[in-house]
Design a protein around this nucleic acid. Structure first.
Length: 500
RNA sequence: GCCCCCAUCGUCUAGCGGCCCAGGACAUAGCCCUCUCAAGGCUAAGACCGGGGUUCGAGUCCCCGUGGGGGCACCA
């Protein structure tokens, strides 16, 4: 924790319109890191002011995903806090009251234009190559008349009265000052006809009321950023520190990920949603580390960061304003590093469910040893069944074709298996020390390359051509099981030999 | 079309005027290790978008191009 910093109050404010994706997760991570680093507060706020886009269960996924990553919030829906409620649909009255204040101050006005008219002028403007915007028809209505019409129940929205002349300067902490001509600013809608606020009002009001010190959000908000500072100004509030994060681009760098791209990527096994991360065998530690490095860096050397290091080392100053293409191969690489960094018992504990999901009955007695044997060769947790499932199988799935290819006939292979069994039978326990030399001598005697014999052994024991080291396998399996598997293989091969 | 942002190896990036004939990581290739596969070690190839300035000196500052991205909803 940096004592020099004041406690930050930051919020992650997603709208429940779908699963938490990596872009949102990265924003939440930065929020979390800043909060923890300064001993501040991480707040979860649900921005559900658009009932049309509401997706059932997405709030549940949001919370589950955040927790899976270890980003526990201090204040939020169902959890409460000093500024409850933390769900915008429950704060309707607050926004309306603030909209009224703005009208009284002359910074907002009711607009009675129909969606149809708006649509019409927009089309005309586009046809004339003009920037589509509201034509301010209702901006200068007589206030008395406006009040009367509102009281009569006439449908209306409330718009922000953006200045028409001059310019506005907003300050983003990554990009410095951003100045725009006010004539390019639209009179955006603050309150919809149904009485609900839109983002531009709701988020500003909440951020202020909730004492948010740093607003960390995506760069897609940059174009409306000046308006947001204007709204703060209209209320006479002090602005938070604004941090607009660079956008995350598709792996090929062409455009930000859209809903469709996300689905496509998923088909290819690329995790776009946090919930996929677990399914695809990634560790939460990995995801946090990888996400942190997309748009942020520590120095020119260090890239491996456990969560506590991220909290300690993170800084807004080192955020990168340029867009970043997602690099999934780096995610794989990081996962390997984090897996190898785990204590064996921890690793064993984490892979168990992946075996069970594939229907294996995990033998707790040997789980830790199995884990130790495969830890350095595991890239994703989903790989463990292919690599080590044979440990938990009753009978090996032999593939004779792979054993009796070319140089070695079925009977020769069977003989080799028998000879190895005899060899193992003579030692008290099978270890590298007791059997490696005899095995190599046996290979010579059988006129086989040692590697070839080892390959045969591997196939008989595992049914695979790739596996953890043989001596590890045999000591985990135990002498009896090794002999059983060798015997089974020899029988199978002898059967093939006879039938020829 | 208009507005905004961005610009170093294929990708993520270090670089905040001299430390840079530009450093690290992923990916790629080769070698070593080796019972397979990994892991690990070593090596190779690979970038300052272009043009003008400013300066004794520019990847680093300014301007203009160009390129990429984003926004222009009673969505967030």
């Amino acid at each position: 924790m940096k004592k020099s910093q004041n406690p930050a109050r930051v919020r992650f404010a997603p709208s429940p319109t779908g699963y938490l994706h990596i872009g949102g997760a990265r924003t939440a991570l930065y929020d979390y890191l800043l909060a923890r680093q300064t001993d501040g507060s991480f707040i979860l706020r649900i921005e559900d002011t658009d009932q049309k886009r509401y997706v059932e269960d997405s709030e549940k996924d949001l919370k589950r995903s955040l927790r899976w990553l270890g980003l526990e919030w201090d204040e939020g829906p169902d959890k409460g806090g000093p500024h409850a409620p933390y769900r915008q649909s429950k704060r309707k009255a607050i926004y309306q009251q603030h909209a009224r204040t703005l009208i009284e101050k002359g910074h907002a006005y009711p607009c009675f234009c129909s969606p149809e008219r708006l649509d019409k002028i927009r089309k005309e403007q586009i046809a004339q190559d003009e920037n589509p915007h509201y034509d301010q028809k209702c901006r200068n209505l007589d206030p008395e008349e406006s009040v009367q019409r509102v009281e009569n129940g006439e449908p209306h929205v409330i718009r922000f009265k953006s200045p028409n002349q001059g310019s506005t300067t907003a300050r983003d902490s990554l990009r410095g000052e951003i100045t725009v001509k006010n004539e390019t600013l639209d009179d955006i809608i603050l309150i919809k006809t149904n009485g609900l606020a839109v983002y531009h009002l709701a988020a500003m009001v909440d951020d202020h009321l909730m004492d948010i010190t740093h607003v960390i959000r995506g760069a897609e908000w940059l174009p409306t950023f000046p308006i947001h500072t204007l709204i703060y100004d209209a209320f006479g509030w002090q602005e938070p520190e604004w941090v607009h994060l660079s956008l995350l681009l598709k792996p090929d760098g062409k455009g930000k990920l859209s809903k469709r791209d996300m689905e496509e990527a998923r088909q290819k096994g690329q995790p776009i949603f946090v919930k996929d991360m677990e399914d695809f065998g990634y560790l939460p530690e990995t995801v946090n580390n990888w996400l942190a490095l997309m748009g942020w860096s520590y120095d020119d050397k260090m890239e491996f960061f456990p969560m506590n290091e991220l909290i300690e080392k993170f800084s807004l100053e080192k955020l990168n304003p340029s867009p970043a293409a997602i690099n999934f191969s780096k995610l794989d690489h990081f996962n390997g590093i984090h897996i190898r960094e785990l204590e064996v018992d921890d690793f064993a504990h984490r892979i168990k469910p992946y075996f069970e999901k594939e229907g294996y009955e995990v033998d707790e007695e040997i789980l830790t040893d199995v884990a130790a044997a495969i830890q350095t060769r595991t890239g994703k947790l989903t790989e463990v069944t292919d690599m080590a499932g044979f440990f938990f199988e009753e009978e090996v799935n032999l593939v004779p074709e792979r054993i009796i290819s070319g140089a070695l006939s079925a009977s020769q292979a069977a003989n080799a298996a028998r000879r190895m069994a005899n060899l193992f039978n003579e030692v008290p326990v099978i270890t590298r020390d007791t059997v490696e030399k005899p095995l190599r001598e046996l290979a010579d005697e059988l006129d086989l390359k040692a590697g070839h014999l080892f390959g045969l052994l591997r196939e008989t024991l595992t049914g695979q051509k790739v596996s953890p080291p043989l001596f590890d396998i045999m000591s985990i399996l135990g002498k009896k099981e090794v002999l059983d598997r060798l015997d089974h293989a020899a029988e199978t091969l002898e059967g093939i030999s006879k039938s020829r």
